[in-house]
Write a protein that binds this DNA or RNA. Structure first.
Length: 847
RNA sequence: GCCGAAGUGGCGGAACGGCAGACGCGGCCGACUUAAACUCGGCUGCCCGCGAGGGCGUCAGGGUUCGAAUCCCUGCUUCGGCACCA
């Protein structure tokens, strides 16, 4: 009789419990409580775009389940949240709708706070951080000044990536072969500008070291590749004298293959190389100038793929190879990059694909200097080669390399470097792909740089006691779309803190990735007035025990954060050198079309409708049940009804154990031959073995199978609903465990049913979320009999029901005695019998 | 091109080298209902067979093993990252 109990109505239950939890301050962490083990759980804070979409739920709700699970294990869990509130969308909205970025941002934050509460997530709200708040960004400024003092921040003129919409970009913010802006997709240009940089390259080697942190392999690989350490040598060539210039200029190149030095048949300089002008012969001047002009234009318009045919021009000059004094031509070509290595290469066409293509195109010589040992004597000098030989086989030896001939290539590497070093014509060298982090942005909505430009004193830092340098409250975009600070004289005009003469403020603001590079430290003391980080709390709570967030930040936020931690450690602000002990990358929920969710594509899934229809618990559980958390995938609500049905069944099981469904002819009766005692044992066994696996699955973030196992237990309970065991002791224990296991994931329904259960038993109320995680009773899981599959040649033929402690020999005898096995054996020769895994399976091998 | 991850029913997905397809969706059948919805029960990888049962099955092809979705090799496909990095 289903009318006996009230319906499961999440809309009634969920807000009530959320209010109660807030009232009880159940999730506000006492950071000073030293009685319990700490657990700092961090999830990437959202950008306040206006609406929470299903992707936010996908990141946050399983993280919340982790927080609740850890609390049930007695840990003092710190699970803060905040808003990454600076950034371009606010400014774009401001320009478009004539609304101040402040208003836009803080209105969105208000809305999102309310949405976040509907999740039932247990954030420690008093620790909230909003990066656009002067209380936050003043510490960006403070940290910047300390970096400046420590030489970790500097201003330099450099060729930088420039987006026509967003201005300068960090190297990491330029994507794809066509080099487009990560944010707006516009093609990125090159510009020579005076900008602020952070010296991340100082930490390149340390950033390659992941020992001591438990991060996913793909992220480690991506960061490693991004940093791109190359071990090789710097080799000093000199320019050869001729009738135009005296020669003797040093031309340094970086190579990873010093063992191929005798194969260098020409040199190539990047078009931007400083010596190009000096080395260009008058009769080639026009051609070289034209080439450089074209190269500049081309990098601005588009950089085509590696398939593009190589281009270049001869300068007319020659260089001298330091090992054999050979004169080789110096060319200019855009396949050599100004910003990597020394901006110049020695070309070894025989052993480099790019050099080979270039040599063939321009008829330059190819000389083989590496060959497989067994062919070393037979091969020609390389002129007939049809492709570069780039293999780095251990069996390669040097040829055509004079006294190094016959030496294995790996040892020649060292031998040649040694000789160069001895003659002061080169040395071992390391080069990285990683560049210093360009942090200047030509934008209003970001942290102002705390520096002024004084006519007399130059760049002058703003003294600490004058921080924060605030963004002006009113902004006038004048319809231009460019940084309004440039025209805001109230902001712009100031006096030099050093000499008092008129000075001008820096109008660029900091990359917003600065904000996210240390926000987890500020969570610990968001209102601390005299410093960015509370050292005592930081020492106790950091590093973060578990970080959850998307992999799309692999070489941006996740790399910058590691750099910041090391740099903050160096300036004495924090105690450790790695911020996040353990990282988990959940997958991304894509739109129904399989594309990344975005407003412009119109494929954003709004969860509010689902919450209204099914409740937060169902949505939470469904997102966990969809598939492995690290996988993500296209959004489809198909199947959410099944999860909702499951929660309804749990509701019924707890509130109406003795009810009998009309639809099942067997309802209310135990299966023929099953005693109530056996049924009770089966229930206990199922409950405790479920507890065992579910505990493990929570720990490993395998939420999809965790939910499946809870469903299985509920299905079994349903099976016994209305029978003599329903409502009994074993039943009650199973229900209790089910609710406890459900509590981290579906916190509202678990709390509601827990409260009703306590009331029914006449016990005083206490929250299920303050309960301890239950312990497995191993004795309950022990079974009386066990099913053993019997295979013939690996194919399942029969099953045996045997006592759990049966001897292997006995198992073998029983298996061979079975009719089906005998039948399968007929006409075959018995080879042997394998009893595998301590009696878990029998395999009869026949011929 | 290089690096990384992954290919399992109609679908999402399970499976310490040991019973492939748990759990859920969808579908079919049935019960309840005047009826429908809800709910409940049963069946549901493909092929042959009334059935008992048998055959085939984890991207393709090889290999290792008593035994392979799982390990190894080759290839194909999809997704993510990098983009002439010397």
């Amino acid at each position: 009789d289903r009318t006996r109990i009230d319906r499961y109505d999440p809309a009634a239950i969920e807000p009530r419990w959320q209010a109660r939890w807030a009232e009880l301050r159940l999730h506000e962490t006492d950071l000073h409580d030293e009685g319990r083990e700490k657990f700092y759980l961090l999830t990437m804070y959202p950008y306040p775009s206006g609406d929470l979409h299903i992707g936010h739920w996908y990141i946050i709700t399983p993280s919340d389940a982790i927080a609740r699970f850890q609390r049930m294990h007695g840990r003092n869990v710190f699970f803060p949240i905040g808003f990454d509130a600076f950034g371009l969308p606010a400014e774009n909205a401001a320009i478009k709708n004539q609304i101040h970025p402040w208003q836009w941002t803080f209105r969105n934050i208000d809305h999102m706070r309310a949405q976040l509460r509907t999740m039932g997530a247990t954030f420690s709200w008093p620790n909230e951080v909003v990066t656009a708040d002067p209380d936050y960004y003043r510490w960006n400024q403070w940290i910047f000044l300390r970096f400046l003092e420590a030489g970790l921040a500097y201003r330099a003129t450099a060729t930088v990536d420039w987006c026509p919409n967003d201005g300068t970009l960090a190297r990491e913010q330029v994507e794809g072969a066509d080099r487009h802006c990560w944010r707006c997709g516009a093609l990125v240009e090159k510009r020579d500008l005076d900008q602020w940089f952070l010296r991340i390259t100082k930490y390149a080697d340390e950033l390659l070291d992941f020992s001591g942190i438990d991060w996913p392999e793909p992220i480690r690989v991506m960061q490693t590749n991004w940093i791109g350490r190359s071990d090789g040598a710097e080799v000093v060539f000199t320019t050869a004298p001729d009738d135009v210039q005296p020669g003797g200029d040093e031309l340094r190149v970086f190579t990873t293959r010093p063992d191929t030095l005798y194969g260098a048949t020409f040199m190539v300089l990047a078009p931007e190389h400083p010596l190009v002008g000096r080395l260009t012969h008058p009769e080639r001047q026009a051609e070289v100038d034209a080439y450089i002009a074209r190269a500049e234009r081309e990098t601005e318009i588009e950089r085509l793929s590696t398939e593009r045919e190589k281009t270049g021009v001869f300068t007319g000059s020659y260089a001298v190879n330091p090992v054999n004094d050979e004169r080789i031509q110096i060319w200019v070509a855009d396949y050599v990059l100004a910003g990597y290595g020394t901006g110049a290469i020695m070309a070894v066409p025989a052993h480099d694909e790019r050099d080979f293509a270039f040599a063939r195109r321009f008829g330059l010589p190819v000389r083989r200097v590496i060959a497989p040992k067994e062919q070393a004597g037979e091969l020609d000098d390389g002129s007939s080669m049809t492709e570069a030989y780039v293999s780095k086989s251990q069996d390669d030896v040097l040829v055509n390399s004079r006294l190094f001939d016959g030496l294995p290539a790996p040892s020649a590497f060292g031998a040649i470097v040694d000789r160069l070093a001895a003659e002061d014509r080169g040395k071992a060298a390391v080069t990285y792909r990683l560049r210093d982090w360009l942090i200047s942005r030509q934008r209003y909505w970001g942290t102002p740089f705390p520096v002024v430009y004084c006519e007399r004193d130059g760049i002058v830092p703003v003294p600490d006691d004058q921080l924060p340098v605030r963004l002006p409250e009113t902004v006038d975009y004048e319809g231009r779309g460019e940084n309004p600070l440039r025209h805001d004289h109230a902001f712009l005009d100031t006096t030099c803190p050093r000499c008092g003469l008129p000075a001008r403020r820096e109008t660029d603001t900091m990359d917003t990735f600065i904000d996210s590079s240390w926000y987890w430290y500020r969570y610990l003391s968001p209102h601390k007035p005299d410093g960015p980080v509370d050292g005592a709390l930081e020492a106790r709570w950091c590093p973060v025990d578990q970080y959850t967030g998307g992999a799309e930040h692999a070489v941006m936020h996740l790399l910058y954060s590691r750099f910041f931690t090391k740099a903050l450690n160096d300036i004495g602000v924090v105690h450790e050198r790695e911020p996040f002990k353990r990282l988990f990358n959940q997958g991304q929920v894509l739109g129904a079309d399989g594309e990344r969710m975005s407003k412009s594509r119109g494929n954003v899934q709004d969860p509010d409708e689902l919450i209204a229809r099914y409740g937060a618990d169902t949505v939470r559980l469904f997102l966990m049940f969809m598939g492995p958390w690290d996988q993500g995938g296209p959004w489809s609500p198909t199947g959410i009804g099944g999860v909702h049905r499951f929660l309804n069944r749990v509701w019924t099981l707890v509130l109406d154990p003795r009810g009998v469904e009309a639809g099942d002819p067997e309802a209310g009766r135990l299966p023929a031959g099953e005693t109530p005692e056996a049924a009770a044992r089966a229930l206990r066994s199922a409950a405790h073995s479920t507890l065992r696996v579910v505990t493990d699955e929570y720990g490993g973030f395998r939420f999809n199978t965790m939910v499946a196992h809870l469903m299985e237990l509920a299905n079994l309970l349903y099976h016994y609903r209305g029978t003599d065991v329903a409502g009994g002791e074993a039943w009650d224990e199973a229900v209790r465990l089910l609710l406890l296991m459900l509590a981290p994931s579906a916190p509202h329904i678990a709390e509601e049913l827990w409260a009703r259960r306590l009331a029914a038993r006449g016990e005083a109320w206490h929250s299920i979320h303050t309960e301890s995680w239950p312990a497995v009773d191993a004795a309950a899981i022990e079974e009386e009999a066990r099913e053993v599959p019997v295979q013939v040649n690996g194919k399942l033929r029969d099953r045996l029901l045997v006592p759990p402690d049966i001897a292997p020999a006995e198992l073998e005898r029983l298996a061979l005695g079975r009719e089906k096995i005998q039948a399968a054996l007929a006409g075959h020769e018995l080879v042997r019998v394998v009893v595998a895994g301590g009696g878990r399976l029998v395999n009869v091998v026949v011929r």
